[in-house]
């Protein structure tokens, strides 16, 4: 039973992943990628990682939907009205990636994998939580800092109007000059 689910989802994940670069429409490409992630998440659920599997589903849906918006903004031909190709060096890329796959597959099948050590914990989620947040919170601190730096950097990069545009050259305005007013009475 588990094997059947795994195989179905694995084939689905690979097929959806391949579809990302085959379909004409950007919206379809985004949702093909999402499908690939969801299939992978089901496979992760098979590995008794309930939290991580569900987390992947949650994160990826949000990411992909946001991605779709950017896609409409910036991409050529988002709806796939005209079939077109946006590739360069297709043959080379195909050769490199096929080679990579053959190499990895050979390694996977030829290596003698070690036997499993230790027993799985009763609650994998708790194990993860303790690893992330345990004694020194090292992982969490690093990830948190990275995410924080990302937030600052992305806002700085994507921002068009700075605070002098909004509050005046002397920052003298109490109410910022925004094109559309927000809801907190500013």
């Amino acid at each position: 039973m588990q094997l059947v689910v795994f195989v179905v989802c694995a084939v689905g994940a690979v097929a959806a992943g391949a579809a990302v670069f085959r379909v004409d429409s950007m919206a379809r490409a985004t949702f093909a990628l999402l499908a690939s992630f969801v299939f992978v998440a089901v496979d992760v659920l098979l590995l008794h990682l309930a939290y991580l599997g569900v987390l992947v589903i949650l994160m990826m849906i949000m990411e992909m939907v946001v991605m779709a918006v950017f896609m409409i903004m910036y991409m050529m031909n988002p709806a796939g009205l005209m079939p077109m190709s946006m590739m360069h060096n297709r043959r080379g890329a195909l050769a490199i990636s096929a080679g990579t796959f053959v190499l990895l597959a050979a390694g996977i099948l030829l290596v003698r994998w070690p036997a499993r050590r230790g027993a799985p914990p009763a609650e994998p989620t708790r194990q993860l939580g303790e690893a992330l947040m345990g004694s020194k919170m090292l992982v969490m601190m690093v990830l948190g800092l990275a995410l924080f730096a990302t937030m600052v950097a992305t806002v700085v990069l994507a921002q068009h109007r700075g605070r002098y545009d909004r509050y005046g050259d002397e920052l003298e305005r109490r109410v910022p000059d925004d094109p559309i007013r927000g809801g907190v009475g500013r």
Binding site: F31, A50, Y51, V54, I57, L58, I61, M64, V65, T125
Partner: peptide
């Protein structure tokens, strides 16, 4: 064991569904 997260994830599926409807 992760029912709360599951509920949250399924609720986010609505995002995808509604965006598809709109697009």
């Amino acid at each position: 064991p992760v029912g709360v997260v599951w509920f949250n994830a399924m609720e986010v599926v609505v995002w995808a569904g509604l965006w598809l409807v709109g697009w």
